[in-house]
Design a protein around this nucleic acid. Sequence first.
DNA 1: AGAATTCATAGTAAATTGCTTGGGATTCCG
DNA 2: CGGAATCCCAAGCAATTTACTATGAATTCT
Lengths: 148, 148
Amino acid sequence: MKLSTKGRYGVKAMFELALAFGEGPIALNSIAEKQNLSVHYLEQLFASLRKAGLVKSIRGAQGGYMLSKKPEEITVGDIIRTLEGPVAPSECVIEDEKTECYKADYCVTRTIWERIRDSINAVVDNITLQDMINDYKKINKDGYMYYI
Amino acid sequence: MKLSTKGRYGVKAMFELALAFGEGPIALNSIAEKQNLSVHYLEQLFASLRKAGLVKSIRGAQGGYMLSKKPEEITVGDIIRTLEGPVAPSECVIEDEKTECYKADYCVTRTIWERIRDSINAVVDNITLQDMINDYKKINKDGYMYYI
DNA sequence: AGAATTCATAGTAAATTGCTTGGGATTCCG
DNA sequence: CGGAATCCCAAGCAATTTACTATGAATTCT
């Protein structure tokens, strides 16, 4: 039950874009440096995020990425599902998919996987990038703004 | 965010033991047949479950496994954590472990992983094998008792 | 022109998953 | 008592996934 680096890096990177929302594009190498990971790897994550409509890109020098919506309109759930696929502890409870097991109606374990899925989705869908910004400002209220 | 087969098979297998609680040991091959998987693979799961004190074994012919506590005293969380390790979407939020990141107090993503972890644990710790039995009986109340 | 960037595709080493194989130890039953 | 049934233990292994790296083209700013 672990997220891969995609989801974890992705949320952190999107948070950085959120902090700079309205200030023009941010180049991936600046994020990559801060988070100490490769630009090329981030590029792959951002390709998915762009296709999902969560960010838009500006090519060429002084280009970069920016959120395509306001931070309060993007949830952690949007990011994680884009990068990791649908939240589902078991194949048989992937939402919007017709892998309906013929035992589904009688299966007691299936309802467990559904409950796990739903509780994870409830948490991540209830946290927007704006919430993260607010938390961040509260935590680092007095004194130096620690970086992520 | 998926469970491995260990967790999924494990919960199903433990549910079968729960259904037969008080009726003596169940041999793994009977479970393996019903669930259509190999005895040897189940043996590996049950080795962990036994070491964790969730089941006890009886060796030799007519032997098998049985729950070591009442079905209402074993939660899905006990089973999943035994077979999959601690629930934690990220390394930095593994409970009972001193991988304290030096940024922990200032990290906004960390609090997200904690919330995910806690909500998963809340769900799985709140479902006992007895709850599953009750659900099962309710679902299959009238008519044929479908198997798992 | 040249530097900085995104975009696209492919390759790949290491880890993990989901088993299989092979054999030993114990206990019941006939 | 012998053999079948069962648990116990350790290794091995193929397929998949993860987490990148590599290469280079396309675009845009200065």
